[in-house]
Amino acid sequence: MDIELDHIIPVPLKDKILARQSDIWNRRVTWKQGSYIKIKAPSGTGKTTFIHILYKLRTDFEGNVKFDGALLEKTDGDALATLRQQQLSVILQDLRLFPNLTARENIELKRVLQIPFYESDKIDAMAAALGVQHVLNQQAGLCSYGEQQRIAIIRALIQPFQWLIMDEPFSHLDNHNATKAAALIEEECKKRNAGLLITDLEDDQHFAYSHQFNL
């Protein structure tokens, strides 16, 4: 699945964005599936807004987002759900786990929402790789931010996808854990021949990026 951005500008940020240069806003950009995209975005440039537009969490923007030529704004209901179940996986900055479910249930929910891509023992394997196996049966709301972030990463990786969209996915992790998480993410993307898109405040070397942009 290719991603095509056609002069998108979020309405609330319109004046601010038009006053400066951006590689993404108000431009035509196309990314092939399998690309590794890094978007560097200092605070206040609309980083999270951009992720939310791509994942269709907000629609207050001008311009068009197309997945394989299909307009995102026309995709809704069950079709949008299929997109999120099969093609587009996300790690949001605010993680969005169900605090009352256990960590395992949070991941399991995403696993069985569609025809499972992995068996359930893969949850344990991934949790072991990221060092959160011990919190799997704990309520997600009681886990630390670092643990929650790793649970959210596993949740995003348990489903099938063609693109993985991440909004500061390592913000609560130390370098050691971030490296482990990045390795797992890269492995899973390769397995699916999927692309990844990551936004962050600073430059980083977590992945071998094919394109880097400034928002």
């Binding site: 969490l57 209901g77 069950d78 759900a81 997109l83 999120r84 969005r96 169900f98 995403k110 929402l113």
Partner: peptide
């Protein structure tokens, strides 16, 4: 809130 998050995560209205 739960339903919203479920939909965000990709649960379909049908499900």
């Amino acid at each position: 809130r739960e339903i919203e998050l479920l939909i965000t995560l990709g649960a379909s209205p049908g499900q």
